[in-house]
């Protein structure tokens, strides 16, 4: 399968905005693997993740009209929709119960960083440099939150710190990242 470029995807989204179903199918084909990858890291339960992925594409269909290629790349725009929807879902649910486990997909929950073997864009390289400026533990906290959708409570348990400490660390880490990226 030939991988569409960002410009191709932007054109396809413009057609989706005009309710072109063929273009929508092409967008799905080109991006569903990526968005599914994002969603299942946060929602390992397959049935829930499937529902969320459906919602994400229905939203893309509806909101293609508001996609602005000057503001974001098509895939970043879609990834944001997918992540927001997945996080909404994982926050809405009460803590995952034991019976959730058997249906889980084999996502490595202990792997916080797909960064290690990623091909990096200029933006990502810059962000990575800034992340390197954080203490190792604080960096891992940020990455687990981003990639696996862990809540403050879950992070507190995993790192054996009070929730208030995690919150403070998150705030400091994010402020530091902002400063670093702003330079």
């Amino acid at each position: 399968m030939l991988k569409p470029t960002a410009a191709d995807l932007a054109n396809l989204l413009a057609r989706v905005a005009a309710r072109d179903r063929e273009a929508f199918a092409a967008v799905y084909k080109a991006t569903s693997g990526k968005l599914w990858g994002i969603v299942v890291r946060i929602l390992p339960r397959k049935d829930i993740a499937e529902d969320v992925l459906q919602d994400v594409y229905v939203r893309i269909w509806e909101r293609a009209v508001s996609f602005d290629p000057a503001k974001a790349s098509p895939i970043t725009w879609m990834a944001t929709i997918a992540r927001n929807r997945a996080i909404d879902e994982v926050r809405r649910k009460s803590p995952v119960s034991i019976e959730d486990a058997p249906e889980s997909l084999d996502v490595e929950p202990g792997d916080p960083s797909p960064l290690d073997n990623a091909q990096t864009s200029e933006d990502l390289r810059r962000l990575q440099e800034c992340l390197q400026g954080l203490d190792a533990e604080r960096r891992e906290i940020v990455l687990l939150a981003y990639y696996n959708g862990l809540s403050r409570d879950e992070l507190a348990k995993r790192f054996s710190h009070p929730v208030a400490t995690i919150k403070t660390w998150l705030h400091r880490s994010l402020a530091q990242l902002r400063k670093c990226l702003g330079s």
């Binding site: 179903r21 929508f24 199918a25 799905y28 569903s32 693997g33 990526k34 968005l35 599914w36 990858g37 994002i38 299942v40 890291r41 397959k46 499937e50 992925l53 459906q54 594409y57 229905v58 269909w61 974001a72 895939i75 970043t76 990834a79 944001t80 992540r83 960083s113 797909p114 960064l115 990623a118 091909q119 990096t120 864009s121 933006d123 990502l124 810059r126 962000l127 990455l143 981003y146 990639y147 990242l177 902002r178 990226l181």
Partner: peptide, 29 residues
Amino acid sequence: WSRRLGPLAEAIPPREAPATVWPEIKARI
């Protein structure tokens, strides 16, 4: 902030989405 952190999503490897999802999306559309 979406722009600042957005590049992180680039690193997430794609996985094949279940085949049942697309027909459901089409039905909803």
